[in-house]
């Protein structure tokens, strides 16, 4: 398999605060890979660093061979990357449909608006509403839906199940599984480990701004004790 994403010796800073200390991992084409770990270990910051959103990021981030470090966020997106931020990032000053149509096409071959609405019929019903008037689950669906139109093939999803009811979590899981089947490459930050285990091929464990271990999904049970120690559960 070909490498979609290679992160090498990634350091990240918010102002003077050094939050990533040499993060290393790779994601292959078509894989679903999670970053797991306790709160504050740098999972969200790693996704932000890939998008160029930290105050400063150093090291190397290559997407299909192209170096992202030093590029502006809008140029990074045009490498074919779609981003779902941890707060979902729904714009209050835009309607549901405007939110959906906001991200410009970054690569040819994205879903059409009709195909997106077919996947998320609820969004069509609410298309005229203010974006932030949607329920939490609907906002999460909108956050995912709007990057499917853009032609991005590498999706960065930051805690898509956070704060959602179990039935909604299940729906989001089906959506992500469907995206995997369509060949999207997905890097998932997830606190809900049981949810992650149903979807992912591999898990990278983070501690103190570094990746400290990698566990393939089929060895999860064998390494359950190690994992429990990492996650402190």
């Amino acid at each position: 398999m070909h490498e979609m994403l290679r992160v090498h010796d990634l350091h990240g800073y918010y102002g003077e605060s050094h939050v990533l200390h040499g993060v290393e991992f790779t994601v292959d084409h078509g894989e679903v890979v999670t970053l797991i770990g306790r709160n504050g270990v740098g999972k969200t910051s790693t996704l932000k660093a890939i998008m160029g959103l930290l105050d400063r990021q150093e090291g190397s981030i290559r997407v299909q061979g192209a170096e992202l470090i030093g590029r502006r966020p809008d140029r990074i997106a045009h490498q074919g990357i779609g981003y779902v931020p941890d707060d979902r990032g729904i714009f209050a000053s835009l309607s549901v449909e405007e939110n959906l149509l906001l991200p410009p096409e970054v690569k040819p071959g994205g879903l059409t608006t009709e195909e997106v609405y077919a996947l998320f019929p609820r969004l069509r019903e609410r298309r005229g509403s203010q974006g932030t008037k949607l329920s939490g689950g609907e906002q999460q669906m909108l956050a995912i839906a709007r990057i499917l139109r853009t032609g991005a093939r590498l999706l960065l999803l930051d805690e898509p199940t956070e704060g959602l009811a179990p039935v909604i979590v299940q729906q989001i899981g089906q959506i992500i599984a469907g995206l995997k089947a369509k060949g999207f490459t997905i890097l998932l930050v997830e606190q809900n480990f049981h949810f992650a285990a149903t979807l992912a091929d591999r898990h990278y464990v983070m501690e103190d701004g570094r990746v400290v271990d990698m566990i393939p999904n089929d060895q999860l049970e064998a390494q359950a004790d190690t994992l429990a120690r990492y996650l402190g559960v």
Partner: peptide
């Protein structure tokens, strides 16, 4: 459409830029 870019960039400039909009 241009107006929706403008409103989005007014509300969350970083995120709008991370979607590929040339905010500067």
């Amino acid at each position: 459409k241009l107006g929706s870019y403008l409103r989005a960039a007014t509300e969350k400039p970083q995120l709008a830029q991370a979607f590929g909009i040339n905010v500067p």
